[in-house]
Design a protein around this nucleic acid. Structure first.
Lengths: 147, 147
DNA sequence: CTTGAACCTACAGTCACTAGAGGTGTTATC
DNA sequence: GATAACACCTCTAGTGACTGTAGGTTCAAG
């Protein structure tokens, strides 16, 4: 019983996409913006990826899933590339992201409370009496900065 | 003592921006996409707004602050324009928005927990040993759908 | 050798603005 | 009435992180 040959390490873009849950176009996009290194090409100009690409892409996807913006991921990848560097910088990036997430949660909790109040007060009937429309028209939230 | 003349009701775009906390360009943008009606123009082609514009813009801003997307706001404005209609539709729009907000919060709570765990495990030192980098590289979150 | 899926590039579109260039209108002061 | 400062005008491009489409090429199986 023979193992599949080295071709096993040479993934097409579709195979890479399937393995990482990342769309094909998104992989090309990451290459275009320099987040993924340029892969080998076949004679017919098709991309072929190895395990290092697979790992790097998994790293990117997981970071994205945690809400890190691409620029933060670029920074983390740069740090990861030199294992002797101190990891203070990585710590800072992660903490910054945590603060972002926390402040978004706080903001959304406020919105949730106001939406609940609006909806509770609406008893159906005519738009003319609708508390939702009234609430939106009159009582402005003081601090915006959403997202 | 005389009241200021009718010009009092005729706001420049800058005055409207100041009163609503909305940027000048954003007001023009809302007009462009048909969310705000076209205002009067002076002979010199400058916009002049009345109180109805002020109210409509306040409605839009407050809705945006609550996270409603512009298309939902368009729908709410359409509803608000006929006071005899039933307000079931407005109720539905608001409830949809509430669900969105709640699921974003749930998602962000998961992220927060994972980020906290990552950061707690990082004891400083070399990148080679950094738990943050390791966590990002290895343990993929199953369900994405962020934002 | 043919078929059909997967691949390629290049460009437009998404959302909700924001920024800039280059020009015109309005108003307060002298 | 002149001038200066500032607000206004249109138009276009850029943001982030993709996604979708058009029109063409390559690959692998049968």
């Amino acid at each position: 019983m023979r193992l599949k040959p080295t071709i096993d390490n040479i993934l097409t873009i579709g195979a890479l996409a399937e393995r990482t849950g990342c769309k094909v176009q998104t992989i090309r996009y990451y290459e275009q913006i320099g987040l993924m290194p340029k892969p080998l090409r076949t004679e017919g100009n098709q991309r072929r990826f190895g395990l290092s690409h697979l790992e790097r892409l998994a790293f990117i996807r997981h970071s994205r899933d945690l809400g890190f913006p691409l620029e933060a991921i670029r920074e983390l990848l740069y740090l990861a590339d030199d294992p002797e560097r101190s990891c203070n910088a990585a710590d800072r990036v992660a903490k910054r992201q945590l603060h972002q997430v926390e402040s978004r949660i706080a903001r959304l909790e406020t919105l949730k409370a106001e939406l609940r109040r609006m909806i509770r007060q609406c008893r159906g009937g005519r738009i003319a009496d609708c508390r939702i429309i009234q609430a939106l028209a009159t009582h402005p939230t003081p601090d915006a900065e959403y997202h």
